[in-house]
């Protein structure tokens, strides 16, 4: 799989120059500005889209078809994209951790809860787009997947709105959710477990889709 990852790295170097330019600026600003949360997390959103962008290029440039001639299984081809996403997540979280530790120690003092919330938000933003978009792209192709992804975003947005309404109206479910949200440690633990499970499911689904895919 090394060859596939190397190819993706060459493509990042060439096609994602804007990301590579913007991301360090956001990291620096995020570590030392007052509006640090948004600026710190925004690079995660940018890098999360890298595997999706690369898969779109692969399709457009007919690499997806060419890769069928190389000694890789469909599972390896799919896994390369997920691994790339995991590398970028680890890199992002590592940089957030270092940047925020420096900021806290130099400026505001160490705050574990704030650090965990930032790391968790970074993880969430890094994982969600890939987790939902990659299976759609593998199944429908980049163009149709964009529409499906928008639809999915509306559904997820609706679900969040539903949760907000339930908590506002103080329904039984709403109160239970509120209780979890008021305890960030519990909330993060539950959400983290959910993310790991959903990410694994997304990976498996993508492999199954790619295994059945036909390349004309």
């Amino acid at each position: 799989m090394k060859g596939l990852l190397l190819k993706d790295l060459y493509m990042i170097k060439s096609y994602c120059k804007t990301y590579l330019f913007l991301i360090p600026i956001f990291w620096i600003l995020g570590s030392f500005s007052k509006a640090s949360s948004f600026l710190t997390i925004y690079p995660c959103l940018l890098t999360a889209m890298i595997p999706v962008s690369l898969q779109t290029y692969d399709e457009k440039e007919r690499w997806s078809c060419y890769s069928c001639t190389l000694p890789y299984s469909s599972r390896q081809i799919v896994s390369a994209k997920y691994l790339l996403n995991l590398f970028t997540i680890l890199l992002n979280l590592g940089i957030i951790l270092i940047g925020q530790l420096i900021r806290m120690l130099c400026v505001s003092g160490f705050n574990l809860e704030e650090l965990l919330v930032l790391l968790f938000s970074g993880l969430l933003v890094s994982v969600l787009p890939t987790m939902f978009t990659l299976p759609l792209i593998f199944k429908l192709g980049a163009e149709k997947a964009q529409l499906a992804y928008m639809l999915l975003a509306i559904i997820i947005g609706g679900a969040f709105a539903g949760i907000a309404m339930a908590t506002e109206d103080k329904t039984e479910t709403g109160m239970a959710i509120l209780e979890v949200l008021q305890n960030p440690a519990v909330f993060m633990a539950i959400a983290l477990a959910g993310i790991v499970i959903l990410y694994g499911i997304s990976w498996q689904i993508s492999m199954k889709i790619y295994d059945r895919k036909e390349f004309q």
């Binding site: 007919r62 690499w63 001639t69």
Partner: peptide, 17 residues
């Protein structure tokens, strides 16, 4: 595929490579 050399019309490398 380790033992096959394959050339297909209408496939491609990434343009940047």
């Amino acid at each position: 595929r380790e033992d096959l050399g394959i050339v297909l019309d209408d496939t491609g490398f990434s343009g940047c490579l």
